[in-house]
Nucleic acid binder design. Structure first.
Length: 557
RNA sequence: GCACCCGUAGCUCAGCGGAUUAGAGUACUUGGCUUCGAACCAAGGGGUCGCAGGUUCGAAUCCUGCCGGGUGUACCA
């Protein structure tokens, strides 16, 4: 495609002596394989009728592009529609499945996503952000990047103290040995229940609130002193470990894996140090007893990094996290994937770091997605009881899958859930309707898996050796044409960091195949060998695309 | 108040490097399995692209204003 674009630009230069940037698009199939409105754009600078320019250009292109082009036509006000020769199209389609962009070749990329807090439950939002983050990390990896997946979470703080308070109440005091009474498979549930109990107590019971505040300080001390021996420390470390086990199990189930967790406790110190050091250099300033960054100077808002008690706020911890990642990886790109509720917050944090580590910030991208909301715009709230856990979404999809097929296919269930989240453009809120959001038919993950399994089934049945694509019939040509678009789509999704482009494309690809399937026999057809090749590269392309999305493409389902 | 994001079929969403007749899915109404997997395919109805201006030969797409919704906005995370 780029070759064609430069070839056309060269022809324009030769014919009209004008430097032009030619952009080819993929028009409706009826118009051709590529289209450009360059003649329309040239009309003004050249002072000519666009159709006239188009005619001249088309005539020249027909001869100069030679064998690879079958036809160049003019339509409407002056669109140039280009149809490739079957050979050229076939060659493009053949190389499509193995295509990899080189955007991140030889580059170190750190992808941080998911970011759940220990001592709490994973909710639907974590599922969404994990799925999207994983797909983005795959995208960087596919484009040649050396990708490091990392995860950040608060293993200290008020939420921990709330849970710890309830844990102590459950255990009847600081008695770590009683933790053994909690069966391993119930641990995460038990802790989640403790968090709810602690949160309620914090709000309703002043006495409990005081104890939780006290407990919060003690947990900080355990961390600061490296205490692993006291009964309370024993309970804390054990339950903290349970949380990470629970996270790991969940990530394993949805098929993503982190090479490193950055617990808040491990970066808070560096954050505090950094902010204090930069306070002396005037990046941060004192204000009402707190240390703040005056974002107003940069059109942002002011935020507190160290509160008046001298404790680091989330801002300082984020400084620590960002600095620690920088030390650990010295990355070419750092991508942080979070919800869009913290965009302004992150701008302030990054702007402050930019004052002393401009290179780091220049290599950092904060990507945001929307929130997962319940149908009808209902906000999720644990207290109102309309809270959706990550497993609830998975369970619901499992149920729907079972209802439709009578089977419990984990791969299909995950395909449904992941695709439902990925197919939407990142950035806007996701409306989750427990009843029908995760669809298994139509534009859905299972549709793609089915369209893949069907193709593999054909390939299994054929005895012939595949033959190269040539002199294509309409149905064959449509499929080859669609396959040939894959590299462009992957490239676009990578540079824009928008995985949904792949979803849109794969659905169209599968749809094109299903139409082909409806009207064209493969096995025992005179054109079997060539069609076999077509079906194979189609299935390979679909599989490659699904792989980038983190969706399995089983040969049978 | 200010800042950022968003308003496209009943519902959920693509399209927004401006352009050839606004597209899917779902739901609804129909038709198609003695032939490679019907989680499929085909047909139909359904849209003043929030509103009003502007730029342009041409705007869902770019600019401005307004209306509506969301989020953020100093010691929470």
């Amino acid at each position: 495609m780029e070759k064609l674009e430069t070839a056309i630009a060269a022809v324009i230069k030769k014919l009209f002596g004008h430097e032009a940037v030619v952009l080819l698009t993929r028009p409706d199939e009826q118009f051709g394989d590529y289209a450009t409105n360059i003649a329309l754009q040239l009309a003004r600078p050249l002072g000519k009728n666009p159709r006239e320019i188009g005619e001249t250009l088309a005539a020249e292109l027909r001869t100069s592009l030679g064998e690879q082009v079958q036809d160049v036509t003019i339509a409407g006000p002056g669109f140039l529609n280009i149809t490739l020769s079957d050979q050229a199209l076939g060659a493009m389609a053949g190389s499509a499945p193995a295509f990899r962009p080189n955007t991140y070749e030889n580059q170190v990329v750190v992808a941080e996503y998911s970011d759940p807090n220990p001592f709490k439950v994973l909710h639907a939002g974590h599922l969404y952000t994990s799925v999207v983050g994983d797909a983005l990390a795959n995208l960087f990896e596919t484009a040649g990047g050396e990708v490091h997946r990392v995860n950040f979470g608060g293993d200290v703080g008020l939420h921990v103290a709330k849970t710890m308070w309830a844990i102590l109440a459950e255990l009847g005091g600081e008695q770590p040995e009683k933790l053994q009474a909690v069966p391993p498979e119930k641990r995460s549930e038990w802790m989640a229940a403790c968090y709810v109990r602690g949160t309620n107590a914090y709000e309703e019971d002043p006495d409990a609130k005081a104890k939780i505040v006290e407990l919060n300080k003690r947990v900080y001390q355990i961390q600061a002193a490296g205490d692993h021996d006291s009964p309370l420390a024993h309970i804390y470390w054990t339950c903290r470990a349970w949380s990470y086990e629970y996270f790991d199990a969940f990530y394993a189930r949805i098929g993503t894996k982190f090479e490193k967790y950055y617990p808040e406790s491990e970066v808070a110190g560096l954050g505090l140090e950094t902010v204090q050091a930069q306070l002396k250099k005037g990046v941060y300033e004192q204000s009402d007893g707190a240390v703040v960054f005056n974002g107003e100077k940069y059109g942002l808002h002011t935020r507190v990094f160290i509160n008046s008690e001298g404790l680091p706020t989330y801002e300082a911890k984020d400084v620590g996290l960002i600095m620690q990642k920088w030390r650990d990886y010295h990355f070419d790109h750092s991508v942080v994937i979070t919800g869009n509720d913290i965009v302004e917050y992150m701008k302030v944090v990054l702007k402050s770091i930019e004052q002393f580590e401009p290179e780091l910030v220049g290599r950092t991208t904060h990507l945001t997605h929307g929130q997962v909301k319940l149908a009808g715009g209902v906000k999720m709230s644990s207290r109102k009881g309309n809270f959706l856990r990550a497993v609830d979404v998975l369970d619901e999809a499992t149920r729907a899958n079972h209802e439709l097929t009578g089977q419990n296919n984990e791969q299909t269930m995950l395909a449904a859930v992941k695709y439902a989240f990925l197919r939407q453009r990142m950035g806007e809120d996701i409306i989750y309707d427990p009843k029908e959001s995760v669809s298994l038919e139509g534009n859905s993950g299972p549709y793609l898996q089915y369209a893949h399994a069907r193709a593999r089934s054909i390939v299994r049945k054929s005895q012939q050796a595949p033959a190269p694509l040539a002199s294509l019939q309409p149905g064959e040509r449509s499929l080859a044409r669609k396959i040939s678009e894959y590299p462009e789509v992957l490239e676009r999704a990578t540079t824009a960091m928008l995985p949904h482009h792949i979803c849109t494309y794969l659905y169209e690809l599968a749809q094109t195949f299903n139409r082909f399937y409806e009207h064209n026999r493969v096995v025992d057809d005179p054109r079997e060998a060539m069609r076999l090749q077509l079906v194979t590269i189609y299935a390979d392309t679909l599989k490659a695309g699904l792989q980038v999305l983190g969706i399995a493409a089983p040969d049978q389902m």
